[in-house]
């Protein structure tokens, strides 16, 4: 580093104290800038993430179906059969009547987890399924994305009632859902995840409905609960 010695070097610059003070000073300065940056962008980032979440939910639950704030009406439900299976469920309501739910689902894909969101109508039918994130092979497994292929729409309208248990599988496994050429593990993972998600919903429907009623205003509790029982059919129980 001849260049540094070429400039006139004051003796204090050779001291250890100068180096450490310099490094500390730069770190302090930089930390201040980052703190300022964080303060000025925090609310915007939170808002953007919220908008992302809403946009993702709008994909699986049509906006016309609800008038509540989905992000506020979020429940944490644990499967009463399997205590390790806990999911965050979004509850869609129109005029305080439950019109649908959105549940996350995780498929065990070819290369890691496939994160899905499943929209389920009040009658237990699938409204829509979308992939949130995945690490499947580009060109083969990524046809599960709506942007690449319309395959994911095969689930629309399917429920545990209109599709028998053994049909919840890809055709190769004797089910009724198409796999796509070159990839079987990926669609199989998605089918299993959606099926498991529907089972979860049916198993815990009572718990879900009860929890979302308790969440509404306490003063008209009796009124809403009577509405709810008529509104949500208990086909699973």
């Amino acid at each position: 580093m001849s260049i540094f010695t070429a400039t006139k070097e004051a003796s204090y610059r050779k001291r250890l104290g100068y180096h450490s003070t310099l490094l500390a000073g730069i770190c302090c300065m930089v930390a201040t800038f980052i703190l300022m940056g964080h303060m000025s962008t925090r609310s915007d980032i939170e808002e953007a993430i919220k908008q992302d979440e809403l946009a993702m939910l709008a994909e699986v639950l049509p906006m016309s179906l609800y008038d509540n704030d989905l992000l506020a009406d979020k429940l944490t439900v644990t499967d009463h059969l399997d205590s390790t299976d806990t999911r965050q469920v979004y509850v869609a309501k129109q005029d305080d009547k439950i019109t649908g739910f959105a549940l996350p689902a995780i498929g065990n894909g070819y290369s890691g987890d496939i994160n899905l969101i499943v929209g389920i109508g009040a009658k237990g039918e699938v409204i829509g399924v979308r992939v949130i994130s995945h690490a499947e092979t580009p060109g083969l497994g990524d046809k599960i994305e709506i942007a690449k292929d319309s395959w994911i729409l095969v689930f629309n309208g399917k429920s545990l009632n209109n599709t028998a248990e053994h049909n919840w599988a890809v055709k190769k496994d004797g089910g009724e859902i198409d796999q796509f050429s070159g990839a079987t593990i990926t669609p199989r993972a998605v089918v299993n995840a959606v099926h498991k998600c529907l089972n979860f919903f049916m198993q815990n429907q009572a718990q879900l409905v009860l929890a979302s009623i308790n969440e509404t205003k306490p003063e008209d509790d009796s009124k809403t609960s009577s509405q709810k029982t008529s509104e949500v059919p208990n086909e699973s129980i």
Binding site: Y18, H19, L22, L23, I26, V30, T41, D44, I45
Partner: peptide
């Protein structure tokens, strides 16, 4: 900046610039 501490100083500077760019992009 002195030659002895230049590498850590530059790394800290670059990392913080990247962090700021990351936050600005995310927000705006």
């Amino acid at each position: 900046v002195t030659p002895q501490v230049r590498i850590p100083v530059f790394i800290v500077l670059i990392a913080s610039i990247v962090t700021l760019v990351d936050m600005w992009l995310n927000a705006w």
